[in-house]
Write a protein that binds this DNA or RNA. Structure first.
Lengths: 214, 214
DNA sequence: GTAGATAATGACACTGAGTCTCGTTTGAGC
DNA sequence: GCTCAAACGAGACTCAGTGTCATTATCTAC
């Protein structure tokens, strides 16, 4: 269920402990929320299970919701990092697609299972759904700033907003379908769905009502 | 600042009182949040000002955030209602644009000022921003269901998700610019911006990086 | 009008997330 | 080892949001 503990000896001990606590919290949260439900599990129960104080929890995560969606944030953190480094050329939407695909490819091998568990959880808790929504808006805003800088455009330029949102929309629909099918086909299947989603964007704009609806 | 009180004698007295309380809460909230700040104003202060109990508040609004964004919900409630009634024909994205434009046109004359105040408020309170984000996602989901039904498509069809999101994105960018310019030009200027936003969607997909960025 | 059904209200206790303060511990650097 | 800074634990506190129940006000039928 969890990624291997942080044994990276290059990191200072203090940092390693911090990460270990963070992982322990995320793992316990995913398990306990899955068993008892997100709302029914209190933070006190969670921190008691992991044997840390509530203070420590809030130093590691900004909110109860955040600890439940680690798998989601990992994707977008990687995506934004790649987008920041990347030298853009050609169609911007293609570049965004590639950043997202690269981000997914580089994720920890254990990510798949955690992501499925996370998405399942989100379906059961409205608070989590709302949290993910606003989190993604934050990602879109960062992507917009980044693109505005790289392209020398105004941050209000509608075009980059549209592109940033299309990216999260494609992810949203693709990932939902992938999780619903129990992540069958693994990471490759997810990437295939994602690619297919991007390819069907142009058809969206041309969607037309044929005859009378019924 | 506020719309005229509900004098519609056709409504039963009980309903009229309910609406009057609702209005009073929304008006006081917009004023108090604007003066003291959203976070610094407690619900107890608000309900004391309007002379109702906290119970009554939560019967009228699902959350503290909701009372602050009435002007935003009015737009989308009208939009979804129009979309539900409408007999669709031709380009779907055009139909959505028309629904939104019609919704804006039919709003209360006092809406402009309330909306400007609301958007200004949102910029100062992260909690409000998050609330609006998830609210809009809810609107998008309803629009998707509606479209899926009317078009006989699967609710997972990416195309209708894209269209529903493009609508809220166009609104978002247009309204932000309109408010930043102090709503100059009134409702007509907002509609013009909205139309311009829709027209620039196709160019988004073709956005290309020319030479090296710098 | 009056009576009884019904719905909204107010008061109050309670839960739990999130903040803040402060004294203690622990790893980092010399 | 010793010192400094950072992370930690403990606990008090604020406030949004929920649930219960008695009270009040409106609606409906007569």
């Amino acid at each position: 269920m969890t990624a291997s503990p942080p044994d990276d000896r290059s990191l200072p001990l203090r940092e390693r402990k911090r990460l270990r606590t963070r992982r322990a919290l995320a793992d316990a949260a995913l398990r306990m929320f899955g068993e008892k439900g997100f709302d029914a599990t209190t933070l006190d129960e969670l921190v008691q299970e992991v044997e840390v104080s509530k203070s420590t929890f809030f130093r590691a995560f900004p909110a109860k919701e955040a600890v439940a969606i680690e798998a989601e944030t990992e994707v977008w953190t990687a995506y934004l990092a790649l987008l920041g480094e990347r030298e853009l050329s050609g169609l911007v939407i293609t570049q965004l697609r590639d950043c997202l695909a690269d981000a997914v490819t580089r994720l920890d091998p254990a990510w798949d299972d955690r992501y499925v568990a996370t998405r399942r959880l989100i379906l059961t808790a409205p608070a989590l759904l709302a949290y993910v929504d606003s989190y993604r808006t934050g990602v879109e805003d960062e992507a917009v700033s980044c693109l505005a800088g790289k392209l020398g455009l105004d941050a209000d330029d509608l075009r980059i907003h549209v592109l940033a949102q299309l990216t999260t929309t494609c992810w949203s629909v693709s990932a939902r379908a992938w999780v619903r099918g129990d992540a069958a086909g693994g990471r490759a299947a997810l990437l295939a769905r994602l690619d297919q989603a991007y390819r069907s964007i142009p058809a969206s704009l041309e969607l037309t009502v044929k005859g009378p609806p019924r």
